[in-house]
């Protein structure tokens, strides 16, 4: 054996180990959700959920069915339906990630689509409301990711994802959540 060989072999092993650790999927990779990206106005479908985002609105106050709240609110208007099964099919997962923080659709409005029962191939229309910090609409850029799914634990099921910039929205003084209507098609 040449004298330099152990050194080279050792270095090669170190490089190989580094490469292997670099390409190893993370521990959570095996249980990631299946993300379906959506655009406003287009229907995006996963395993048992189909969503059409119709509008995004920012407002300094929101009303819904006699309820009123001030604050920085993002309203998401959408149509949503199930595809295969209605059994336990609720819109239970709705999060907004922006600025390194994650928000959950507000449970405060009495009539929002959050947690509502879906019907197969017959969409419901309505709104989701996100309550954000007071300064949420002041940033000049605020890349945001909205994700919707059926289980509050979103792993291993479809998530419908919409990416947008919160700063692009015009802030209204007051906005009303759309009533939940079973529109069908």
């Amino acid at each position: 054996m040449k004298r330099w060989m152990p050194g080279v072999a050792g270095a090669a092993l170190v490089v190989a180990a580094w490469g292997l650790s670099a390409v190893t999927p993370s521990e959570t990779a095996a249980e990631e959700p299946f993300v379906v990206s959506a655009n406003i106005g287009d229907r995006a479908s996963g395993r048992n959920i189909s969503v059409t985002f119709t509008d995004l609105r920012a407002a300094e106050a929101v009303t819904n069915d006699g309820w009123h709240a001030d604050g920085s609110w993002l309203l998401v208007d959408l149509e949503v339906e199930a595809l295969r099964s209605e059994e336990g099919t609720l819109l239970s997962f709705a999060t907004l990630d922006v600025g390194g923080r994650s928000y959950r659709a507000s449970e405060r409005p009495p009539e929002s689509l959050f947690g509502s029962q879906l019907a197969i191939d017959l969409p419901h229309s309505g709104s989701l409301a996100f309550e954000l910090p007071a300064t949420a609409f002041e940033a000049s850029r605020a890349q945001s990711v909205l994700r919707l799914g059926l289980e509050s634990d979103p792993r291993l099921d479809s998530l419908i994802e919409l990416r947008f910039d919160l700063a692009d929205l015009e802030v209204e003084t007051e906005a009303e959540l759309d009533p939940i209507v079973w529109v069908g098609r």
Binding site: R101, S102, L132
Partner: peptide
Amino acid sequence: TWSPWLQPGV
């Protein structure tokens, strides 16, 4: 609202 959620920074 019963058992409300605390959103970050709100």
